[in-house]
Computed example of a mutant assay.
Amino acid sequence: MGERSLALTVIGQALHWMQHEELFRAVSPLLRVGGGIAVISNGTPLWLQDSAWSRALCGCLEEWLGITLEASCGTSSRDRLRYAQALESAGFVDVREIVVEYSGELTFDQLFGGVCSAIPADQLPGPDERAVFAERIRQALPADERFTEHVRVSTLVGRVGVVDA
C-alpha cells in the first residue's frame, strides 16, 4: 500500500481503548485528498440508561465486578467533542457529527450479549462462570419490564483537505 492510498478509515466503539490523538495523526497521511474518517459510537451503555432495568443491571454489575460503573465508553457528548477536537488537531477538515437515534426491544440473551461484549476480557467471567453470571443478572432485573434500549449512533466525520507539498 502506497502513501495516501486510502479513501476511508472507519473506527468503531473501541476507540476509547486507544490513544486517539496518535491514531488520528497516524491515519491522516494514509488518506488521499478528499478521503475521510468516520468515528462511530453507539451511545449510552446498557447499564447507564434511564430505566428501572438499566439501574438494576448497573447495580448487579457493580456488585459482581466490585467497581462503580460511570464510564460512557467514549460516547458522552464530552468525549465526542474531545474526539472532534483531536480530529481537527490531526489536520482533518469539515469535522462534524451525524446522529441517528432509535429505540428497540432486547431479549434477555441480547442484553446479556451486549453486557459481555463490553466487559474487558480480564474481568469477563470465564465459560464455567458465565451461566451463574447470566442468572445473577436475570434475577436482578425487574421481571415484568421490557428491555427497551435507547440507541444514539453518533458518527464523527472529517476529511483530508489539500495537502501541502
Rank of each mutant, 00 (worst) to 15 (best):
L65V: 05
F133Q: 02
Q123R: 13
E3W: 11
R152W: 03
A14W: 00
L57Y: 06
C60N: 12
R4V: 04
A86E: 11
A38L: 11
W47G: 07
Y102E: 14
G2Q: 11
D79W: 05
D94L: 10
L46C: 12
D94A: 14
T155S: 10
L69H: 08
G66I: 08
C58S: 15
G36F: 02
S51A: 15
D164A: 14
V157T: 11
D94W: 02
A7T: 14
E135Q: 13
A143G: 12
R96Q: 14
S5H: 13
R96M: 08
A90H: 02
L6E: 08
H20Y: 05
D122G: 01
C116E: 12
H150K: 13
S76R: 06
F108P: 04
D79V: 02
S72V: 01
L111E: 06
A71F: 09
V27W: 02
E3S: 14
S103E: 15
A14V: 05
V151F: 06
T9A: 15
G114Q: 10
S89V: 03
A14P: 00
W17R: 09
R96K: 13
A121G: 00
Y102H: 14
R152T: 11
T155A: 14
D122Q: 09
C116K: 14
L111V: 07
R80S: 04
D128Y: 00
D50Y: 10
G74F: 05
I11W: 01
L31N: 00
L106A: 02
L6Y: 09
P125W: 00
T68I: 08
G59W: 09
R146A: 13
V93G: 10
N42G: 11
D128I: 00
F147A: 03
F24C: 01
L106D: 05
Q19H: 05
V132R: 05
